Computed example of a mutant assay.
Amino acid sequence: MGRYVVRRLGQLVVVVLGATMVLFACLFVLPGDPVGQIAGSDKARDPAVIEQLHKQYGLDKPLYAQYGMYVGKLAKGDLGQDYTQSRPVTEILGPKLVNTAKLAVTAMVFDIIIGIFAGVVAAMRRYSVWDVSVTFVTTMAIGVPSIVLGMIMQRIFVIQLDWFPLIGDGGVRSMILPALTLAIIDAALVAQLARSTMLEVLRADYVKTAVAKGLSKSTVLFRHILRNSVIPVITYLGISFGVLLGGALITETIFNWDGIGLALITAIQQNNNPIIVGVVTISVAIFVLLNLIVDLLYAALDPRIRLA
């Protein structure tokens, strides 16, 4: 197990380096000067100032040299310097990552409670009114784009009912609505996935044997059915959590939530490459770490899985 973890952490380094290398190459070919936001308007730009800024941020060097400097700083936990604020990227993105993590964890709680509960009840009462209702509602929810869902919820609960603030301030009240917007679609997918996997497990021979042995319904449900049907759900939740931690761009923009998704949109508008590369680096690292955690949960839930 220990060797497996070490190998996966080595893969994390390779994936992060590969992602940042591709991103550096893409940013290099894009038009525009990154220091333009600092220098001011075209008429006010002084060639001497532009040259000085390029030297200050290392933009006068070839792409491979810039990337080498970035990797060297990254090994020390340094994501570079922001162009517009002249502050470390880690100092800027740190509080924003915390805000995004709050939103992601809240959305995950809604996903697990609503999605798994609805899927389990639908599977245990197959073809009932509850099963048909869950299938219909989740299918409708999956088909609604998040931007449409967010705008509808904002209009109803913010503008008309005035239950929640319009601008996210990091508090609990301002967090509920964007978290629900993120959770509704994911919860619908989790419910359908939980229902389908549970229906497969219900037909398994070991479940029929457990029932024939006279075990209680709760024992059969929690020890045999849920434990063996939850692995695909955990896989999806791990990927979804990684997406949320990487920044929910649309939702954070709609609700003006000060997370790394909103920071990425602002950085793209300002041509602020250090913030863009920093957000992507953090997102890739989070994805690989969450995949490792999901794999370890596989072994904990199913002893048959061996991570050799």
Results as ranks from 00 to 15, higher is better:
A48Q: 13
Q52S: 04
A48G: 10
V71G: 06
F136Q: 04
L63Y: 15
D131Q: 11
G58P: 00
K43D: 06
T138S: 03
K43C: 03
P34S: 04
P47I: 01
Y127K: 04
V120M: 12
A75I: 00
A104H: 01
T138V: 08
P88H: 15
V109R: 06
V121A: 03
G72I: 01
T135G: 14
L79H: 09
V105H: 00
Y83R: 03
P34K: 07
P34H: 11
Y83C: 03
D46E: 10
L79F: 12
T135K: 03
L97C: 03
D82K: 12
G80D: 06
I114T: 06
Q37K: 11
T139E: 14
T139F: 05
M124H: 14
V109S: 15
M140Q: 09
F110M: 11
I112K: 13
A104Y: 00
Y64Q: 12
D78S: 05
V71Q: 10
I50P: 11
T135I: 15
V137R: 01
I116C: 12
I50W: 15
Y127I: 08
V98H: 02
S133W: 05
Q81F: 13
D78L: 00
A118Y: 06
K55P: 00
A65K: 14
W130Q: 08
R126M: 07
V105P: 04
Q37P: 13
G36M: 02
V121W: 14
M140F: 02
L59R: 12
P47Y: 11
T138K: 04
P34V: 01
V129S: 05
Y127H: 09
S128R: 03
R87S: 07
I114K: 05
A122N: 13
P95Q: 15
R126P: 04
G40K: 12
I50C: 08
I113W: 05
D82V: 07
G68S: 07
G72V: 00
Q66D: 12
P34I: 01
G40F: 01
D82Q: 04
I114P: 15
K96I: 07
T90C: 08
T100K: 00
G68L: 05
Q85N: 10
K102L: 08
T106D: 02
D33R: 05
I112T: 11
V35C: 05
T135D: 09
D82G: 09
Y67I: 01
Y64I: 04
G36E: 12
V89L: 10
P95F: 00
G77L: 01
F110T: 06
P88D: 13
S133G: 14
V109N: 11
Q56P: 00
A104P: 11
